[in-house]
Structures are given as C-alpha cells and as structure tokens.
C-alpha cells in the first residue's frame, strides 16, 4: 500500500522513477538534437564557403544569401530568372527556371538548391525565399 500511503520508501521510489524518467528524456532529446544538427547543419552554405570549399562539398548544395540589389533579370517569357546571391562579400550569379515565390525580391534572403556550373553560374532547381515581413525587420539593408 506504499503507493496509496506514500511513506518515505514510496516517495523515494517515486522520486527515483521520475529522476530516471527525466534522465531518459534528456538523453533522448540530446540524441534527437544531435541527429537533427547532423542532418540540418549543412542545410545551406554561404557564397564565400561555396567558393572556398567547392571541392569538399557535394555537387548538389543549398546556397543561402541575399538577392543582390539590381541583379534580378527576367527573360521575355517570364520563365527564366537570373539574379545574383551575395553574402555581403562574395557574389554569385544564379540561373533559375520554375516557380518563383511571391516573397522573392531584391534584398530578400533566399535559399537556392542546385549545382555550381563550370561557368561559375549556379544552376538552381529550387528557390526558397525567407518569410516576408509580417514585421518589417529593423535591418535597414533588407527593409528599406
């Protein structure tokens, strides 16, 4: 009946159960986070990293950066898009054909997925733009 009338023994047993449970959960969480970072850490590289470590990276990479102001060019049919991605120091031209997110515009952060061509142009197959300004960021570079 120790569970119904928790004496010292019952209480200590409960404490033990909860400490073990909490420890198990913390370990599981740590494992999940570790695995998640392993999977996600290479989620994207910057232009500078891509140029430096081009050989060490897989052929297909995600590239993150800001759309360089003044670089966006549509072709006449409005299907093919050329623009440049910059990390502030290095800049790389990108070619893309496909669905352009509404929130894509100059100065906005984007992630493109594709391969770096021989001619130094990044051939993108997907284009993701970071969430727009529900709130205007205070960052003057991206808002104004």
């Amino acid at each position: 009946m120790s569970a119904v009338h928790p004496g010292r023994v019952g209480q200590r047993r409960h404490t033990l159960v909860f400490v073990c449970g909490a420890a198990a959960i913390v370990v599981a969480l740590a494992y999940l986070v570790y695995g998640g970072i392993q999977q996600g850490a290479t989620y994207w590289v910057t232009v500078g990293e891509l140029e430096q470590r081009a050989g060490a990276l897989p052929a297909r990479v995600r590239l993150g950066g800001t759309v360089a102001p003044g670089s966006v060019r549509w072709d006449a049919s409005h299907r093919h898009l050329r623009f440049a991605v910059t990390d502030g120091v290095h800049t790389l031209p990108v070619a893309y054909a496909g669905v352009v997110p509404d929130i894509f515009s100059e100065g906005r952060q984007v992630v493109v997925e594709g391969t770096l061509g021989r001619d130094g142009t990044f051939d993108a197959t997907t284009l993701l733009a970071k969430c727009p300004t529900k709130y205007t960021p205070a960052d003057p570079a991206s808002s104004r």
């Binding site: 969480l29 999940l32 986070v33 695995g35 998640g36 970072i37 999977q39 996600g40 850490a41 989620y43 994207w44 910057t46 990293e49 995600r62 993150g64 992630v111």
Partner: peptide, 18 residues
C-alpha cells in the same frame, strides 16, 4: 564566426518524435 543554419530538417527530425 560562421552562421550555421540548421533549417527545416532539424526541426522535423527533433520536433516530430516529440
């Protein structure tokens, strides 16, 4: 000194089991 963006795969991996 290098911003590591973990991105959606991280969240899916960790949050879905929870």
């Amino acid at each position: 000194g290098r911003a590591i963006n973990v991105g959606p795969p991280f969240f899916d991996h960790v949050v879905v089991p929870l």
